[in-house]
Design a protein around this nucleic acid. Structure first.
Length: 165
DNA sequence: ACGCAGATTTTCT
DNA sequence: GAAAATCTGCGTT
């Protein structure tokens, strides 16, 4: 959920990818690479890692491991729950199915930018809270990367129609 | 439905 | 100078 610009949007996470640390060739901190961009990955768990790519897109990750161990989970898709009007406005009137189906799309829908980088996902303007169900999860390889292409680290809620691609 | 190219800028070589 | 954890619009089938 986000509370940005004085208004709230809520969604259920339906798709994620894991980037599992310095030994993962697809992780931005592969080989313990430490730059101004990757610095957030070395923060404590539940910190936001928001990075900018392709000249125009923001993507949101959750730092998952202890401080100084750079691993994170990329949030790839949400099922929109609240604040649909605001999401539609931010996304420029695309079909609802495409509001949050993709890592950069959901950031646009929720108003997430670099100003959320290194903020707490427990008490910040962007938060992640525990849900109530125990959904079945499907596992596939990650998308859009060129290293470790076959590692099964993409997780989808089984049967969700809100996932990307 | 599918495939391709353009957008646009940070980061690292 | 090239590539990048992407998205969109426009072309063809």
């Amino acid at each position: 959920m986000s509370d940005i610009g004085g208004r709230r949007t809520v969604g259920r996470i339906v798709e994620t990818e894991a980037y599992v640390g310095p030994d993962d060739p697809a992780c931005h901190a592969f080989g313990h690479r430490r730059t101004s961009r990757t610095e957030a990955l070395y923060d404590p768990p539940a910190t936001a890692y928001v990075y900018f790519t392709y000249g125009m897109h923001w993507c949101l990750n959750v730092v998952t491991e202890r401080a100084d161990y750079p691993a994170a989970v990329l949030i790839r898709a949400l099922e929109p729950w609240e604040g649909l009007e605001l999401m539609r406005r931010r996304r420029g009137g695309v079909r609802d199915r495409e509001l949050c189906a993709g890592p950069a799309r959901l950031c646009q829908a929720l108003g997430i930018t670099g100003s959320q980088n290194r903020t707490s996902l427990i008490e910040g303007k962007v938060r992640i809270v525990r849900g109530s169900g125990r959904p079945r999860v499907t596992v596939t390889p990650r998308i859009g990367i060129s290293e470790a292409v076959d590692w099964p680290l993409r997780f989808l809620i089984e049967g969700s129609t809100w996932v990307s691609r």
